[in-house]
């Protein structure tokens, strides 16, 4: 059972999903926060005590005035880790994977293990290579196709969604755009520092990810010393949505091993 709460970190109020007990697992969301009904969170809650905050501007979390950069989010995440009280398994999905990688590269005593699922945040190719599929410049249909292995089943259907869900969806898009328009979803300096990540790391990738391909994922994993790399069949950019059991099983094995 996942509950929606609000919690204050360094004076910033966040929507936080919580569930389960035991080993703490902190989940940093992707382009859209998960909902309490997300099977992925339920699976994780059977492994430990899950905390999944929504970053400012995402979901129902307000955005403080002038809180507008990835730098702000990284510091906020450090405040969230400070409050954890002990080592957690830090799980970063897509955009949240970028944040998790930044914080892990800086180092934080409360990161015990790191899981990155289809993380963004670095550029691998040259100036003419679109490493990260552009969700703003491409058509909604192409973006759906790039995002999901099965876009018909998992892509958003605005005609069927409730008003409140569409409003949250639009808030998420505005927030992501604010934080990541330029450079587009990456920090040019991050590859230099990924080698400083000193905790056991698992990098998971949806085999059908068209936002950032598995090859990008392999290159990402290579920059982190000792990182394991695993792909997930039948999943695109959001394995937590399309293959929640498989992603949770990979995490369970990683935490258990």
């Amino acid at each position: 059972m996942i509950a929606r709460e609000t919690q204050n970190f360094h004076g910033i109020e966040l929507e936080v999903l919580r569930g389960g007990a035991g080993h703490p697992i902190l989940v940093l969301h992707g382009m859209h926060p998960l909902t309490p009904a997300a099977p992925f969170l339920t699976r994780l809650a059977s492994l430990g005590a899950v905390t999944a905050p929504s970053f400012p501007g995402f979901g129902d979390s307000p955005k403080p005035k002038d809180f507008e950069t990835v730098f702000d989010i990284v510091h906020l995440t450090r405040a969230i880790l400070d409050a954890a009280g002990g080592p957690v398994t830090l799980v970063g999905l897509s955009f949240g994977g970028w944040i998790a990688a930044e914080v892990a590269a800086q180092g934080h005593p409360n990161i015990g293990r790191l899981v990155l699922a289809d993380p963004l945040g670095i550029k691998i190719g040259g100036p003419e290579d679109a490493d990260i599929f552009d969700i703003y410049n491409n058509s909604p249909a192409d973006t759906r196709a790039a995002t999901f292995h099965d876009p018909e089943r998992f892509g958003p259907d605005f005609d069927e969604m409730d008003d409140s869900d569409i409003i949250r969806y639009a808030r998420d898009r505005d927030a992501l755009c604010l934080y990541s328009w330029n450079p587009y979803l990456y920090n040019p300096q991050l590859p230099r520092w990924l080698g400083r990540i000193a905790v056991p790391t698992l990098v998971c990738w949806g085999e059908s990810d068209g936002i950032v391909t598995p090859d990008y994922g392999r290159a990402y994993a290579k920059l982190i010393q000792g990182a394991r790399f695993a792909t997930i069949a039948g999943a695109g950019h959001c394995p937590e949505i399309e293959r929640p059991d498989d992603l949770a099983a990979l995490i369970a094995a990683f935490v258990g091993g």
């Binding site: 703003y136 410049n137 491409n138 058509s139 909604p140 973006t143 605005f158 005609d159 008003d163 569409i166 409003i167 949250r168 969806y169 639009a170 808030r171 898009r173 505005d174 992501l176 755009c177 604010l178």
Partner: peptide
């Protein structure tokens, strides 16, 4: 194209999105 108009972030308050995003 819709990505330059109705789906472009920041161009209207999110509260207006339900009337803008839906095809009908």
């Amino acid at each position: 194209a819709p990505q330059f108009s109705k789906f472009l972030p920041g161009r209207m308050p999110p509260e207006m999105a339900p009337q803008v995003y839906r095809t009908r």
